[in-house]
Simulated scan of single mutants.
Amino acid sequence: MTTTDVERLHRALSDVDFPAGKDDLVTHAERAHADQDTIRVLRAMPPVHYSNMAEVERSVPLGPEREPADQAAQRRMHTHPGLSEQNKDTPGHPIADEVGENRGS
């Protein structure tokens, strides 16, 4: 999976006026001569309008050097449609969590 980091993302989008659409973000990154990984993750984002940089950060896969808690928070706080299921934290079944198994109900 292609990733970027917060620093490269901020460098690529330093002159963006929010709100901005996905295409605007990709165009700004290309004009800023961002690295190919950063451009790829921006192209892979859901095609919606982003209100601020925090929404963009939550919508792209950031590098593995992030703490697991930060990665989980990114997945949990992501509000845009189109995020693959593997990148979402999904709660377990409440009965299975309490009893330890799902009794087929």
Rank of each mutant, 00 (worst) to 15 (best):
S84M: 10
Q71P: 00
H93A: 11
E85D: 13
D37P: 03
H80W: 05
L42K: 03
P46W: 02
A69T: 13
R66Q: 12
G63K: 04
Y50M: 04
R43M: 05
R58E: 11
I39L: 01
S51N: 10
E98N: 05
M77N: 14
H80A: 15
E98W: 01
R66P: 00
Q71E: 15
L42Q: 04
A34K: 01
S59N: 08
K88V: 09
Y50H: 06
G63F: 03
R43F: 03
Q71G: 04
N87G: 15
E55G: 13
E101V: 13
I39D: 01
N102T: 00
G82M: 07
R58I: 02
D35Q: 05
V41A: 00
A96D: 09
E67R: 12
E101I: 11
Q36C: 03
Q74M: 12
S84K: 15
R43L: 05
N102G: 06
A34N: 04
A96M: 10
P47N: 15
E85P: 00
K88Y: 00
G82Q: 09
A34Y: 02
V99W: 14
R58H: 08
M77W: 06
S59V: 02
M53S: 01
T38A: 00
T79Q: 14
E57G: 01
R66E: 10
E57Q: 10
L62C: 11
S59A: 15
E55M: 07
D89T: 13
S59P: 03
G63T: 11
P64A: 15
V56H: 01
G92Y: 03
M45D: 05
E101Y: 15
G82N: 08
N52C: 07
H80E: 13
P91A: 09
L42Y: 02
M53V: 07
S51Q: 09
G104C: 00
Q36K: 14
V48C: 07
I39E: 00
G100Y: 08
S51V: 01
T90I: 15
H93R: 12
V48T: 13
P68W: 14
P94I: 10
V48N: 04
A54S: 10
Y50W: 03
P68Q: 12
M53P: 02
R76W: 10
Y50T: 05
R75V: 06
A44M: 08
H78P: 01
H80F: 13
M53I: 12
V99S: 07
K88C: 10
G104W: 05
E85M: 11
G100K: 07
S84C: 07
Q36Y: 04
I95K: 09
Q71A: 13
T90C: 07
E55I: 02
A54L: 11
Y50L: 06
A72T: 08
D89V: 14
I39K: 01
E98S: 06
S51I: 00
P64S: 14
N102R: 07
D35F: 00
P61I: 04
V60A: 08
L62W: 09
R43K: 14
P61S: 07
S51F: 01
M45G: 05
E57L: 07
S51K: 10
R76P: 01
T38D: 02
S84E: 13
E65K: 11
E67I: 04
A34V: 03
